[in-house]
Simulated assay, not measured.
Amino acid sequence: MLKENQLNLTKEIIETSYKLLIHKLAFGGLTARNEGSFQLEFGYILKTIGELYEFRLSDRFHLEFETSITLNEVSIKSKTERARIDLLISYQDDENVTKAAIELKFFKKNNHREPNNRYDVFKDISNLEQYKEHDIDLCYFILATDHSHYYNQKQYSIDTSDFDFRHGSSYPAGKKLQYKTSKPYGSDIALKNNYNFIWENINDLYFLKIEV
């Protein structure tokens, strides 16, 4: 299989699995009570769909949870050159292999870690950018929440307003994001790419997917 075809099929697996996940969650076909169960439910759907894409005997789909890799530089998330990926996919044949990394967040309104949650989203995106430099072909960030605060809050505190991924907002590459409180939750973050944040709202849930 040509590498480009393999990349496109891997994207198709992820996109199809994501659509199934968010609709089953929004309409009650699945229940995720925390981030761990959200990860397991998505992993199960990915594995099921991915194995259906093993069209030839040489095609192999593999999924790993919480996989550690070594990076080329220190991660802002782990403070070391080691990183742990929520979901790591490999889709391969005898000639090529395509790898995809997915970082997940699941924010519940009744466990509102604000504004630290918003900082952690950009921290995950920063890590995903590093994964792209470490032999990972595709990188995705996925967030689900039952709290509209992240989706369409009118405004945020001036001290943490840099960390904004509300529906319709954007981030220009290189912009420094700062936690301006007296005791910052984390160090400054500057991402390498431009991002547009486009959400989906289905029933009482909100979903954000970003390809890095």
Rank of each mutant, 00 (worst) to 15 (best):
A101R: 02
F55W: 12
L40H: 05
K105V: 02
V97I: 15
E73R: 15
E81I: 08
Q130A: 04
D120E: 13
D59A: 08
S126I: 00
L57C: 03
T48S: 14
K99V: 01
F106R: 03
L88H: 06
F55P: 02
T70V: 12
L128K: 05
F107Y: 13
A101P: 03
L40M: 05
E81C: 07
D59C: 07
E81G: 09
L63G: 04
V97H: 00
N116P: 00
F61V: 00
A100I: 01
S78T: 15
L52V: 12
K105N: 04
V121M: 14
I125F: 07
I89M: 13
I45M: 11
F55Y: 14
L71C: 02
H62Y: 13
K109T: 06
K109I: 10
R113T: 05
D86C: 03
V121S: 11
I102W: 12
E73M: 10
V74T: 14
S126G: 11
D93T: 00
T67V: 07
Y91I: 01
Q130M: 14
N96Y: 14
A100E: 11
F38Q: 03
P115G: 11
E54N: 13
I76K: 09
N111I: 06
G43K: 01
T70M: 11
L87Y: 08
Y44C: 05
L40G: 04
D59K: 01
D94S: 09
E64G: 05
F122M: 02
F122D: 02
E81W: 05
I125H: 08
N96F: 15
